[in-house]
Design a protein around this nucleic acid. Structure first.
Lengths: 209, 209
DNA sequence: TAGATTGTTAATCGATTAACAATC
DNA sequence: TAGATTGTTAATCGATTAACAATC
């Protein structure tokens, strides 16, 4: 528990990762907190605090080694190993997640898709068969499942989550507009797309305040 | 500028709105900061600070009127008026946003979809024709467009945003994995779905710390 | 070596929580 | 009225920024 990293820092890690990859692709292999701050719109001080906190090391007088830092952050976030995902719900969101080409690039592989709609079951989506929900238990028991994508209506999201928890699934990427209730040994990320749109609406409405 | 509301408060508004609607649907028309805090997992103190800050009024001894409060927040966020959206890019994300039934319920209506792919142009999506990008300027000049949904690859997101800015569009809901650069009189919300997945991966990886 | 930049402590800033008088 | 709960000020907590000695 001593290597606990504060939530605001964890939430910045993907942005560090994203910018470091872009820098590396541009051939920039070393960068100071000053310059990285300019790229990411953060203060150099915050960058040094963050990187120090996550155990990354720079070189005084020179800065940070971009590839090393990127790898360090990838390992910390666990994206240097593959993650197997199942998608619950073959609606709009289920389609978009399964068809996305960017998640596999980061090691997040969709291995199964489930739905209750008899009209969808049996069809193919992103090269995978849409399975009937009755096959869920057997699938999760026989295959490794790291993350469940909840792409279901709000009223069934918690029930399905409970069922998956009972099967041992520990991580939930939730797109239903509810906040999932979880035990302490499981984690979730609630996306709430509409919430974001409402925040944008607020900002647009108050552009001239 | 004196009715400036701090960012953390603004980001909580959609959650207030969501819970207040659920409470109202359950027939709960009055609620104390104590009880609302229990529902939303916030301290009563924070709720009173927030509501006071946004100019909502409660009744000492009784609590807050749920319908009034919901309407107050809806008006503050601007979701009590319709918003017209155009979608740039008819890929996975463009499909999901256009086909979603939840955004129209909140007054966010998709009025046009554009793509560059000749194979897609002319087809119908969510009851709308997919238009060629060459029609963009004429469309935006003749119709009201409140929000542009950037559902494009990262490498063209900024260029398209600049083009829309020149046409007078002020709000951007960006799903491309880049941070848009905007003038001070425009607003954007960057969704970064992959970032969320990476945070989830971090939490899953460090479940036992 | 001299200059640049980190690592880290101290200062500041802002958000959250606590407390309680006002009042419904 | 008495009890409950707001509105609001004060205290606390935590995150960000500043500063600078250490050192590459």
């Amino acid at each position: 528990m001593r290597n606990y990293i504060a939530d605001p820092v964890v939430k910045r890690l993907p942005a560090y990762y994203r910018h470091l990859r872009a820098l590396e692709k541009m051939g920039i292999l070393q960068i100071s907190s000053q310059d990285l701050g300019a790229v990411m719109d953060l203060t150099p001080s915050q960058i040094r605090q963050d990187l120090n906190r996550i155990g990354a090391e720079g070189r005084q007088g020179y800065g940070y080694a971009v590839p090393d830092l990127r790898e360090h952050i990838a390992h910390l976030m666990g994206v240097d190993r593959p993650h197997r995902m199942i998608i619950l719900g073959a609606g709009n969101i289920g389609h978009a997640v399964s068809l996305s080409s960017s998640f596999p690039l980061e090691g997040f592989e969709t291995v199964a898709i489930f739905d209750t709609d008899a009209g969808k079951v049996g069809k193919t989506l992103a090269g995978l068969p849409i399975r009937d929900i009755s096959e869920l238990d057997a699938f999760v028991k026989s295959e490794t499942v790291d993350i469940a994508v909840i792409a279901l209506p709000a009223d069934v999201a918690q029930d399905m989550t409970d069922r998956l928890l009972a099967l041992g699934v520990k991580a939930f990427w939730n797109f239903a507009p509810v906040d999932l209730h979880l035990p302490a040994d499981a984690v979730s990320l609630n996306v709430h797309l509409t919430d974001g749109l409402e925040v944008l609406s607020y900002q647009l409405t108050h552009l001239n305040d």
